[in-house]
């Protein structure tokens, strides 16, 4: 089986300050990987390097493209990378405002990717948007409302619909449940789990919330000061942490 994504020796520094150092891993189709670590550990830098938002100083990010197999997305031309970004890749931001067009209706937000790849039938685009709003549990009569009037949880679900409408194969998520109430978080987590399973999605989820990765991620990568200090099966890393920092992290979680 070929990996969907091969990450090799990714390093990125901001001048003298280290973003992330020498990160390598393979991600296989259908796998969900969590990246945890405290603020400033380099997890967001890494995610942005992988998703093509930042250019790493060193390393390669090879993605199994539909047409040509494994291609280094860092040396790809920008149009190719953009095309990936709106077809096979999706990026869910922590703040839905960063991932949505707030002055465009919910339907228009979901339909944009389709139109970007030349969907030119209004009825079909609208039907897809309707279908996806249903899948993320947004009432159909909200299709023409702008997301400014939506609750935080609805905005996040709309962002997910907008990202998944193209049937991507790899989803990057940056603290997807970040600013949400715990009750809303739970619903979103269940939704994401179902979508990941039904669409056989691969995902890389950056979060500092260990409960989120336990429920969503198959594998876990623990970062500290830009380095990966521990990797493994999620429940194994959380229940039998090997590294001192991971032990500290796991034991620091507040019990309810």
């Amino acid at each position: 089986m070929t990996p969907l994504l091969e990450v090799e020796n990714i390093s990125k520094s901001y001048g003298a300050r280290v973003g992330c150092t020498d990160v390598s891993f393979d991600l296989y189709p259908g796998e969900v990987m969590g990246i945890v670590g405290e603020s400033g550990s380099g997890k967001s830098t890494l995610l942005n390097c992988l998703a093509g938002h930042l250019c790493p100083d060193l390393g390669a990010v090879r993605f199994d493209t539909r047409a040509d197999g494994l291609r280094d997305t860092l040396t790809m031309s920008e149009p190719e990378r953009r095309m990936l970004g709106r077809t096979d890749w999706a990026f869910v931001h922590q703040n839905p405002r960063d991932g949505l067009r707030m002055n465009v209706s919910a339907g228009g937000n979901v339909g944009e990717r389709l139109m970007a790849v030349n969907a030119r039938h209004y009825g079909d685009i609208r039907a897809s948007a309707m279908d996806w709003l249903g899948r993320v549990e947004i009432a159909h009569d909200r299709i023409d409302d702008r997301p400014t009037g939506f609750s935080g949880g609805m905005q996040q679900r709309l962002q997910i619909a907008r990202n998944l409408v193209m049937g991507p194969r790899l989803v990057f998520m940056d603290e997807p449940t970040g600013g949400l109430d715990v009750s809303v978080q739970a619903r979103l987590l269940d939704l994401l789990r179902g979508l990941v399973r039904d669409m056989n999605l691969s995902a890389i989820i950056v979060t500092h919330d260990l409960a989120v990765v336990r429920l969503l991620a198959d594998r876990l990568m623990v970062m500290k000061d830009g380095n990966v200090i521990e990797t493994g099966l999620t429940d194994q890393v959380l229940d039998d942490p090997q590294h001192a920092y991971t032990q500290l992290l796991v034991s620091s979680v507040l019990q309810v």
Binding site: V104, G107, G108, R113, M115, Y122, I125
Partner: peptide, 17 residues
């Protein structure tokens, strides 16, 4: 990059409204 999906979003919004 000939990334013109947004232009049709405007027309989509017209029709939906």
């Amino acid at each position: 990059l000939e990334d013109y999906g947004l232009m049709h979003v405007k027309l989509y919004e017209d029709i939906s409204q």
